[in-house]
Simulated assay, not measured.
Amino acid sequence: MMFQNLQEHNMSFNEVFNRIIKFMKLKPSGNFRLMVGTDSQVHAKHTVFITGIVILNEGKGAWACIRKITVPRKMEHLHERISYETSLTEEIVSLFTEERKTRMIDIVLPYIYQGATFAMEGHIDIGAGPRNKTRAFVNEMVTRLESMGIEPKIKPDAFVASSYANRYTK
């Protein structure tokens, strides 16, 4: 399982986690949101899935990376694709074990009374609007992420999936 961003390639998840810890330690009194989301794009002979990991310190910057998976066929069924996107997000979320979450929380804990926060979100590239073809899957996918103990976000709030990851699927 390898990750990359514009500066680094072939990062292991341990390296990604260490970058997140390093970023949080720069300003430990920040308002941090750790967000994971996946988007996909069907091409002529394959389907590309990009999972983004973003650690955002509200108003003070972010660090991000992606993981790319290519399925060697056109995945034309929307439910299959959305379900697989959610599975890839769940896979990355599961790597943030209780021990790792505790390490992140321990960084902000001394600064809680100065307003420091930490939240973990799963971004799903679906919307509930009446004209959105994915609205039928909202309850299913949201429930899957809630069962993992993270806050699910859908469009328009799911920007890690719908914007960041989307840019790398083309």
Rank of each mutant, 00 (worst) to 15 (best):
T47K: 00
H9Y: 09
D39V: 01
R100L: 06
A161I: 10
V142F: 06
E85N: 07
I53L: 09
V36P: 03
Q41C: 14
Q41N: 13
E8Y: 15
K60E: 15
T169N: 10
R135M: 05
E90T: 10
P110D: 12
L109M: 14
V48G: 00
D106A: 10
S40D: 05
I107V: 10
T70Y: 01
I124M: 14
V138Y: 04
F23R: 02
M120D: 11
P152I: 04
T102Q: 15
T97G: 06
L56G: 00
P72S: 02
S83N: 14
L88G: 03
Y111T: 08
Y168T: 01
T70R: 12
S147A: 15
N31K: 15
A128E: 15
G30I: 06
T117M: 15
V48N: 02
P156C: 02
D39S: 12
I50A: 05
I55C: 08
M35F: 00
V142K: 11
I50R: 09
T89R: 09
N5D: 03
L88F: 09
E58A: 13
E80N: 11
V138L: 08
I105P: 02
V42E: 02
I92P: 03
V142Y: 07
V54D: 05
M1E: 09
M35N: 12
I154P: 03
D106T: 07
K25D: 13
P156I: 03
V71W: 06
F137W: 12
F159L: 14
P156Y: 04
T38L: 03
Y84M: 13
S87L: 13
N14Q: 14
S163T: 12
M11K: 10
S83I: 02
K155S: 11
R103M: 13
S162T: 14
I20C: 05
G59H: 07
L56Y: 00
I20D: 02
